[in-house]
Amino acid sequence: MGDLLGVAVLGAGRMGADHIRRLDQVVSGARVAAVADPDTARAEEAVDGIEGVSVHDDAVAALDAPGVDAVLIASPGPAHEEALLAAFARGLPVLCEKPMVPDPAGALRVVEAEARLGRRLAQTGFMRRYDAEYRRLKSLLESGRLGRPLMLHCTHRNVSSPPHFTSAMLINSSVSHEIDAARWLLGQELTAVTVLRPTSSQAAPDGLLDPQFVVFETEHGALVDVEVFVNCGFGYQVRCEAVCEAGSARIGDDHTMVVTARGSAQQDVPQDYLVRFADAYDREVRAWVDATRKGRVTGPSVWDGYAAAVVAEAGVRALESGRRVAVDLAPRPHLYAEVGR
Score class of each variant (00 low, 15 high):
L146M: 03
E44S: 12
V32K: 05
Q266P: 03
E338I: 04
A33K: 04
R286M: 13
G233C: 05
A280F: 08
L150D: 05
E97R: 03
T199F: 06
E44K: 13
A89T: 11
R135K: 11
T199S: 14
V224W: 00
R42S: 10
L329V: 10
G340I: 03
A70P: 01
Q202H: 10
L185A: 04
V224Q: 02
V339T: 14
V7M: 04
E313Y: 02
E44R: 13
Q202P: 12
V226W: 03
H334V: 12
F165V: 11
G52N: 08
A34W: 02
A122R: 04
G247S: 05
E284S: 15
R183H: 10
V47I: 07
E284Y: 13
I20V: 15
V111P: 12
L95D: 09
D268P: 00
C244N: 04
G11R: 03
P38L: 02
C154I: 13
A86P: 08
D290A: 15
D131K: 01
V175D: 12
D18G: 14
L121S: 10
M15T: 13
L196W: 10
A105L: 11
R293D: 07
S28G: 15
V47H: 04
S176L: 06
V68R: 05
S173I: 14
F213A: 12
S201Y: 08
G187E: 02
V230H: 07
G6M: 01
A41E: 14
F234K: 01
V27P: 00
P102T: 10
A249N: 04
R129Q: 10
E284V: 13
A249V: 02
G29M: 01
R283P: 00
G305H: 01
R317T: 07
P104R: 05
Q267L: 10
R119K: 13
S176A: 12
G2H: 11
P162Q: 13
A287W: 13
A287L: 11
H19E: 10
V214L: 07
S167Q: 06
G252Q: 11
R250V: 12
G252S: 09
F229E: 12
E45R: 09
V32E: 03
A74R: 14
A34C: 07
F126L: 02
V68W: 02
R22Q: 15
P163G: 10
L274I: 06
G144R: 11
Q123A: 14
R286H: 12
A318M: 08
I20N: 01
L84R: 05
R323Q: 15
L329F: 15
S54N: 10
P270H: 01
G233F: 08
R22H: 09
D328L: 08
A46Q: 02
L4V: 13
Y281D: 07
E142R: 14
G125W: 00
D103F: 07
P38E: 05
H156M: 14
V327C: 09
P331W: 01
A79N: 13
A291L: 02
A314D: 02
V339N: 14
G147M: 00
A113P: 06
T155E: 12
